[in-house]
Each structure stands twice: as C-alpha cells, then as structure tokens.
C-alpha cells in the first residue's frame, strides 16, 4: 500500500469508515510499520474504532482517541497526543474521522499541523446509504466534507455493503456510483473494500485495489 504517511478516512456516517480504518491500520501493522490509529469521531457514541483499543494494541497499533477515558464519553474532547503521529515522521497514521461534514470539521483544527505533511484523504462510498445513493448526494457529501475539513480528497473507496449479507452485485452496484463520482471529480478509485468472501469473487479488472475486510466492530450476534 504505497499511500502517503498520513491517511484520513472520511465519508457519510454509516459508510463503514471505522471498519475500513481499523482494517487498514491492521494491514499496515502486519507490514511491520509503526502505526497510530487516531479516532477523531466526536459525532457517534457507538461503534467507534477506539472500542477495539485492546485488540489493536496487541497487534502493536497505538490508538489515540479522547483525552477522557471511558467508552461512554459523549463530549467533543480530543486528545493532544493526536499531534504525535502528525509530527513524528517515523510513524504511520490512520485518522478515522467522524461521519459527515460535522465530523470532518475536527480535522480543520489541525490544518497548520498538516500543511507540510504527506497526507492522503480517502472518501468512503456506500451506495446503500439513502443520502449517498446517487451521484448528486455523494458528490454533495464529498464537497462539504472537503470544505469543513479544509482538505482535498485524494482517493475514493468503494465500500458499498449490506453488512454480513453483502454480495458481489452489491459491490458492483457501488462501483458504478464510485466510477461516476471519480469521472466527475477526477479523483481516482483507490480501494474496493468488502468482506473477504466477496473480495475473492470480484472481477480481476475492477478499478481500484481490492481490500478484503474483517469485521472488527460487529459482534457475532449482529447482522
């Protein structure tokens, strides 16, 4: 994965940002990189990547979230230690932003810290979310997120899914939307992410790198 040192994962809430961010951090760690996963989600109180801090720490990934501990934290407090992976060039950073423009706003606070940095901003697309089911809606989210985050999206991720019931057709349906968005914005499709079982069935010539996902944030009893 030859992406830039700092990768920001953004998108509409429910698109699967956190699940992708966790998987991406794990993939980097497996390559022997020193990885920081920065959970900047101050919007969503549940299903945040920080919930998996313990498992991730065992894989050698440092999770940076709120300065106030406890899963039930419901205030927009981020930790000053977020600056660590931004400034320490030997670290690889995955920044998991909160959903929607409102969640992306947190990043604008670090505008100056990111100015001279090598940064990729990935926008996650899920065509099954009603608000981003078509080009108009998806484009609107992308542009508004760019504006509030004060960053430019450098890559698209087709993460179209219906959780554990996702089929190849679902991913391909999302691929059409992501391609349309790519044509409109001239932003390349960087990844196509989906369940491992579905990934193996995707056509070889699909645009973007196929990125198999393991569901870290869904309990066994969830759909």
């Amino acid at each position: 994965m030859g992406d830039r040192r700092i990768r920001v994962i953004t998108g509409h809430y429910g698109s699967g940002k956190s699940e992708f961010a966790v998987n991406y951090a794990v993939a980097l760690a497996k390559q022997g990189k020193q990885v920081c996963l920065v959970d900047l989600d101050v919007v969503n109180p549940y299903f945040r990547s920080r919930e998996k801090e313990e498992e991730l720490r065992e894989l050698g990934i440092e999770v940076i979230a709120s300065s106030i501990g406890g899963a039930a934290i419901d205030v927009p407090a981020v930790s000053a230690s977020i600056l660590k992976p931004l400034h320490q060039k030997e670290l690889d950073a995955v920044i998991d932003l909160g959903g929607d423009p409102v969640g992306a706003r947190v990043l604008s606070r670090f505008y100056k810290d990111l100015q001279d940095e090598e940064i990729d901003v990935f926008f996650v697309v899920n065509a099954y979310r009603p608000e981003t089911a078509d080009l108009e809606g998806t484009l609107s989210y992308l542009r508004r997120i760019e504006a509030t985050a004060r960053q430019t999206v450098t890559g698209l991720i087709n993460n179209t899914h219906l959780l554990k019931s996702t089929k190849v057709e679902d991913v391909l349906l999302g691929q059409e939307l992501t391609q349309a968005l790519s044509r409109e914005t001239q932003i390349p499709i960087r990844f196509v992410s989906c369940l491992e079982t579905v990934a193996s069935e995707l056509p070889d010539d699909i645009e973007g790198e196929v990125f198999p996902l393991q569901l870290y944030l869904r309990e066994q009893w969830m759909l």
Partner: peptide, 10 residues
C-alpha cells in the same frame, strides 16, 4: 435499547 438506536442494519 441504545443498540437498536445506534446499530446499522439493512
């Protein structure tokens, strides 16, 4: 419960 409110499902 909170899980029903916060969980995503098809």
């Amino acid at each position: 419960d909170g899980m029903i409110g916060q969980m995503m499902e098809p």
